[in-house]
């Protein structure tokens, strides 16, 4: 395994007296899918919220290292995490821009590049050559991901009107249009039927292999988690209880205990 892309060290998040995440450390490399699993309320989404600037961690260091640069995510504003550190995320409850078309959703995700190329929109008004080129590239990138997610036919449909499974994939496509190095997916398979979640597995593996980015995955659907993860971190009550490759996690006694409870005769 190469040097880690993301290093989480001693992350704690407290809300008043409640410890949502306590002293959590793990790493996630690029070109790999790292799954974070655990029962409901284990603190998985809290970890994502700390990574993407929604919460400021009570304690801990979140280091993202790529292309010779190091970013300390716990100190950065949300939009800087997106454009400087290049961390993208999706949500459990889908958060697309519902009144924009699928294509527009993907183009708006390339806002920073386009804004620079258009000299804060002023150059764009006069049809600057550099801006026209940047816009073409943005549309091409958007079309590429629409194609990968098998959504090309929906390009000009308002995002809010898309079928549920398509919205899930569009959200992932939008995250990819920000050209992230780390992609955080919060339950991408929730509400998908088995065929759709098999599609999703293929898409995620393709992203990992083609883009060489790191994927951090929260998921309850074990067919997804066990099928595509390279590494699994298990949380329970905000603590890490196990970590390892899928086969080891499947056999881990403490994980089974967390999900299924204590066997009665051992008490």
């Amino acid at each position: 395994m190469s040097a880690p892309l993301l290093t989480v060290e001693h992350l704690s998040m407290r809300f008043g007296g409640l410890v949502a995440v306590g002293d959590l450390s793990f790493t996630a490399p690029s070109r790999a899918i790292t799954a974070v699993i655990g029962p409901n309320g284990a603190g998985k989404t809290t970890v994502f919220n700390c990574l993407t600037g929604f919460y400021r961690p009570s304690v801990g260091r979140l280091t993202l290292a790529h292309a010779g640069q190091t970013h300390f995510l716990e100190r950065m504003e949300g939009f800087d995490i997106a454009r400087k550190a290049r961390v993208a995320r999706t949500f459990q409850n889908i958060r697309l821009f519902p009144n924009m078309t699928a294509l527009e959703n993907l183009i708006v995700a390339q806002h920073d590049t386009l804004m620079r190329a258009s000299l804060w929109s002023i150059g764009g008004l006069f049809g600057l050559a550099g801006y026209r080129q940047a816009e073409r590239q943005a549309v091409d990138r958007a079309r590429h991901w629409l194609d990968q997610a098998e959504l090309l036919e929906f390009a000009d449909v308002e995002a809010g009107a898309l079928p549920y499974g398509a919205q899930r994939k569009l959200e992932i496509a939008r995250a990819l249009c920000t050209q992230p190095v780390l992609l955080c997916l919060d339950e991408p398979a929730a509400g998908l039927n088995p065929r759709e979640s098999a599609d999703l597995n293929r898409l995620l593996l393709a992203i990992r292999d083609a883009e060489g980015i790191g994927i951090l995955l929260i998921e309850h659907d074990m067919s997804v988690v066990m099928g595509i993860s390279d590494h699994i971190v298990v949380l329970d009550y905000g603590q890490k209880i196990a970590e390892g490759p899928p086969a080891a996690i499947r056999a881990d006694a403490s994980v089974i205990r967390a999900y299924l409870g204590e066997p009665e005769d051992s008490a």
């Binding site: 929604f54 958060r95 821009f97 009144n99 995700a109």
Partner: peptide, 20 residues
């Protein structure tokens, strides 16, 4: 680009920040 950013911010401010 600015107009698109304005529409995105109008629809979901947090998400707009998250896409940069």
């Amino acid at each position: 680009t600015l107009g698109r950013a304005q529409r995105a911010t109008e629809q979901d401010m947090t998400m707009a920040a998250l896409v940069g």
